[in-house]
Design a binder for these strands. Structure first.
Length: 140
DNA sequence: GCCAACGTTGGC
DNA sequence: GCCAACGTTGGC
């Protein structure tokens, strides 16, 4: 089981919208970055991820899981871009902010801190657990 | 709204 | 294959 982090600007796609999409989930389209694409190709069904709001909020607000393996991104006109489907699993009752993550030594190696522009990021098992604890997530 | 940081592109 | 120029992202 691997863990990830999906970044989205709430203006274009928010956690609320993701939740409304329901159990079927939605395609995580629009990624045009090789590293992010490679991360998606490495995902397996059932892998979990954080849902992060960039720009506005700048906090981890939800938990998602991979509902469909990487497949061609239908919104890409050219290039072999791919996307996965993700579905909302549960809220993070106490959203974990970027501000906090930056102050906690144990989280200082998170990609979110060191490469904030990468839109799909890997998260280590330790980081996953810590943020779930901090966020008041009971069980995933 | 600004600007630093990064990834990508294209000329050489 | 290098690197300058450019566009985009995202924190502030």
């Amino acid at each position: 089981m691997a863990y990830w982090l999906f970044k989205s600007e709430p203006d274009s796609w928010s956690w609320d919208q993701q939740k409304k999409a329901g159990a079927k989930g939605t395609e995580w389209t629009g990624v045009r970055n090789f590293q992010a694409r490679n991360n998606m190709k490495a995902m397996k069904l059932g892998d979990k991820g954080f849902f992060y709001h960039s720009n506005e909020g700048k906090e981890i607000v939800g938990i998602v899981e991979v509902a469909k393996l990487a497949h061609p991104d239908s919104t890409a006109k050219e290039g072999n871009w791919e996307c996965v489907d993700i579905r909302a699993v549960t809220d993070v009752p106490k959203p974990v902010t970027l501000d906090y993550i930056k102050t906690d030594k144990r989280l200082k190696d998170m990609v979110l801190v060191n490469n904030s522009r990468l839109s799909v990021q890997p998260v280590s098992a330790e980081e996953w657990k810590m943020i779930c604890d901090l966020g008041g997530v009971k069980k995933v």
